[in-house]
Amino acid sequence: MTASPALPARPDAAAPILAVRDLKAHFRTNHFGVKRYVKAVDGISFDVRRGEIYGLAGESSSGKTTLIKTIAGAIKPPLEVVGGTVDFAFLPGYGGLHRAPPAEVARIRWRHLSYIMQGSMNVLNPVRRLRATFADFARSHIDASDRQFEQAVVDHLARVKLDASVLTAYPHELSGGMRQRATIALATICRPDFIIADEPTTALDVVVQKDVLGMIRGIQREIGSSVLFVTHDMGVHAHLTDRLGIMYAGRLVEEAATAEIFRRPLHPYTRHLISSLPRIGDDIQRKGLEGSPPSLADPPPGCRFHPRCPLAMAACSERVPDMVETEPDHRVACFAVNGDQAP
């Protein structure tokens, strides 16, 4: 790969590897006259630092997948990027994959950036055996003889506890968890600088999950990759991620070191989320959040959590709380936490 002479080959180590600024991505649909404009990602800013595992959690349908797709450049109608920028250190100057020329995007895919989509056990080519799929995607990126390549694939599959015999299988002949592991192996075999993973371990039993997380951790340590990891499984966040962002209704509402979020969640939504987690051996009745999830086609004004928030006050339905750095490295968007910053 070649870096343009104007840019240093090794960028400043302190600069984030990914900087997202005021990103807005909306769905604009029109079915037989029924128009819908869904503000799935509505003004999100955050950084992923070099070598860290950044976790994202949040309510179902709060826009996590849409955010991830926008960052990974997987933007297809009706999804539109309405505003903001996405800057990867290895793709400087364009403000997002969606604005970069296709040749540049092809250059960074697999080597620099790999994206494991939600439900990705279903993206394996159904009419090709796994061996052919690995060759299709990874062969050209790995400099080795055919035999070395085959060995590298087998070794890598072993890290996710898959036996070499899966290479002769078609996807439908594997269980859900086996397919999910095959996709993870495919996305990581080129050891990319940046791995984006959307619910990559949901179909795995906890024993295998531990191995797979260990493999991701291992790659991240070996080559200093950064990872953006989305999951609903708070146990996974607690054990894997360094920092954690919490989303609600298309916005980021809190962000801090993972340990800090678990010990001292500040936003009322985060507090609910953390307290709703059941454990083996306790018999406390747990309830889901009261009230219905907000419609992103017609979100509540002001703070989008206000119709369901136990601490809501007058300002909450009138103005949007900003993300404020309450303490070093702990950002929260809530009037009850930060005080009402009325003009």
């Binding site: 630092r49 070099r50 070598g51 860290e52 595992i53 039993d205 906890v206 024993v207 999950q209 531990k210 340590r221 200093g224 499984d233 708070m234 146990g235 996974v236 966040h237 607690a238 054990h239 894997l240 991620t241 360094d242 070191a257 993972t258 340990a259 800090e260 678990f262 010990r263 953390i274 987690l277 454990r279 083996i280």
Partner: peptide, 24 residues
Amino acid sequence: QQLRAAVLLPEVTGGTAPANSPST
């Protein structure tokens, strides 16, 4: 038993420093 032992609890153990801060 192995399954039971592999469950990841939704909590971060360790001192006041984040248990899993970046390895840098």
